[in-house]
Design a protein around this nucleic acid. Structure first.
Lengths: 209, 209, 209, 209
DNA sequence: TATGAATGAGACTTCATTCAT
DNA sequence: GATGAATGAAGTCTCATTCAT
């Protein structure tokens, strides 16, 4: 439940020998993150994980399955951690949003390869994969939606807010911020951007009257 | 200077016959847009364009060059059209932003394949390509930056706005909106979202006191 | 140290199964020898060796590497065998030269494909390969040079002999003899030419006074 | 009849527009000589010759025909020039041999590309081409044979000389000398080697008793 | 004659996946 | 479970040759 490990969310069957399962996922994040999905041969991932090529197929159906699994673990971690944070600020939409951004930047800030993977290379998926991706990512969207709803109902956010659009603004801004961060070399602390990002989300661009 | 056509910028040579050049680019947008860069063999692009495989290499240095060329044409068009729009609202930052969103949604709204290409598949590039992509995309960023600056200086936007963050919010929100639109099947009119998107960008989430 | 096998020198890796490594080299000698380097597709070599195309790349870096490897094995064999022969006639330059010719004709005489490969198709290399070829072939040149030097110092060969030219005469004459032999169909025993070739090298054309 | 040009030996039909014919051959010698047969696209030869790709096929049946034609012209020139030289030393085998070497080194010494072409890249031919090459080269062999015969009959060369072997020694030594010269960068005057080469051919290696 | 755009066969090479050990 | 050698489909790109202009 802490979200720092890939272990918890595995089923019992998969828990057997999860050392290798995790090693492969970690290796895949690193290799794909740095080289891109189509420049990351299974053989390279296996070597990085310290296992044989064939072993990968004992833990994953195929290469796509690795991609999906990484996303599942990542989103799982994200949702776990954010949920944990939100419980302690129950009802405070503004603070919830701030925590959301904080956790998001934290998770990717300490793992640029994972950021690169999620923001950049995950897109290299075909139509049928995107369906699965959508399903996996939904709980995360839900959290954002809940925060927005909470804000509107509590009067902190505008009544007229278009909820879908607001979610895309939040998601898109964080996404773009992380993408810019890695594409410019991950040279500064992503954490330092939590407040300005939060500020522009909440306050918008306009000068208040 | 019209920006509506692929004609202006020639890559390999000033071919007499740019019909084929454009046909290949159009085909590439379609095939890559639908299947993804790495699932779009040259042979498929060539067939879609109605030319032989080898012909593609008379107009483009290699496969990457096609990707780069599409982006160059697209950004060129985008910049041309937005610049045109902005001239008629000289100095009005809010209106400029609205026009930016309008043009952005217009261009991609009529060409979901192009949207898919730009929003999704363009990311499937390696490190050295991203350098080129960065160079090409810069003029577009510049336009957004100019609008922000204009807004701040004219007092329409907040003085305290972090310009980099603001740009990422604008870019990320539009990007995410278009991405969501195509990933859900491009079923509604993208144009209908101009106002709500503009609204959340300018007003932010918070209820005014 | 026996020089009769391709086993000793490993290029890519110390493969457990060098049966395939040798099978591919043998197939390459045959196919390239008969068709020429640029008319010998990897697919043909693989088929001749009884392996899949991709297997070739488990044992060789690329097509050039095959060429280089064959040369290395051949020169290795040649040098080993000649060295062995020369040990038993230590100091006798004339006899050494005769043994050199004998071994040279022996090796190529039993393998016309290898002769064809070495004499004819090896030349089809680009500039950078020729550098490597030069390095590999050097020990062989050295042996010839040593024989010449030995002959001069022992007074068997003329003091005034230009050593470089002498080496080229020896090498060129053997080379041309083998080339002519294969280009005319390898119909006679190459061995039968050892003495006349030796004779013309040592005695030259002129009638002694 | 001077052998310095490609013009004379053309038939009347081919003489029409022989400027282009010669330009293409010259270009081919240069491009193939420097890059090798299989790295010398027709397009490159055409560009070097200042004609269109298609024009090449008005003068040559195909790419192989260019190779053959160059050889024919070269051997033609060689035979013409040597024949001319030999007429002035009628009957003197030793002097004839010296003139042979001189002309050989002269022709290739002033044109390293042609040397590279003949010594190195011409070998990149397939079986059926080699038949043609043999036919073309025969008159040149004939000249060498004649010199040898003349030497034996006049008592200048040994009675016991094996004529075939002697020819191969002469040819192989010149060939190897020129090859070594170009492969080491054509840095010295090939002419300077005429005498030492002649010397080793005639005197052989042995110290006279 | 001359052009050069167009063709498409075919080359080299990579790599996801399988399977005997 | 674990291995890694082997496979072969598929991809990118080159280039000899043709043909409409």
């Amino acid at each position: 439940m802490n979200g720092y490990s890939f272990i918890e969310v595995r089923t019992i069957a998969q828990k057997k020998n999860n050392e290798k399962y995790e090693a492969i996922l970690r290796a895949a994040v690193k290799v794909i993150g740095q080289a891109g999905y189509h420049n990351a041969p299974i053989s390279k991932i296996a070597r990085e994980a310290g296992v044989a090529d064939g072993t990968v197929y004992l833990y994953f159906k195929n290469k796509e399955d690795i991609l999906i699994s990484i996303l599942r673990e990542t989103i799982g971690t994200l949702v776990d951690r954010i949920s944990g944070e939100l419980r302690s600020v129950e009802g405070d939409a503004a603070e919830s949003l701030k925590r959301l951004i904080t956790v998001y930047f934290e998770i990717f800030g300490v793992n640029p390869d994972l950021a690169m993977f999620t923001q950049v290379h995950l897109r290299q998926s075909n139509a049928e994969m995107r369906k699965q991706i959508g399903d996996i990512i939904r709980p995360y969207y839900q959290i954002i939606d809940n925060i927005i709803l909470m804000g509107i109902e509590s009067g902190v956010f505008r009544q007229s807010t278009d909820k879908r659009i607001a979610r895309r603004m939040i998601f898109g801004t964080m996404d773009e911020t992380v993408t810019a961060w890695i594409l410019t070399g991950a040279k500064y602390e992503l954490q330092s951007l939590v407040l300005p990002v939060y500020d522009v989300m909440v306050g918008g661009l306009c000068a208040k009257p």
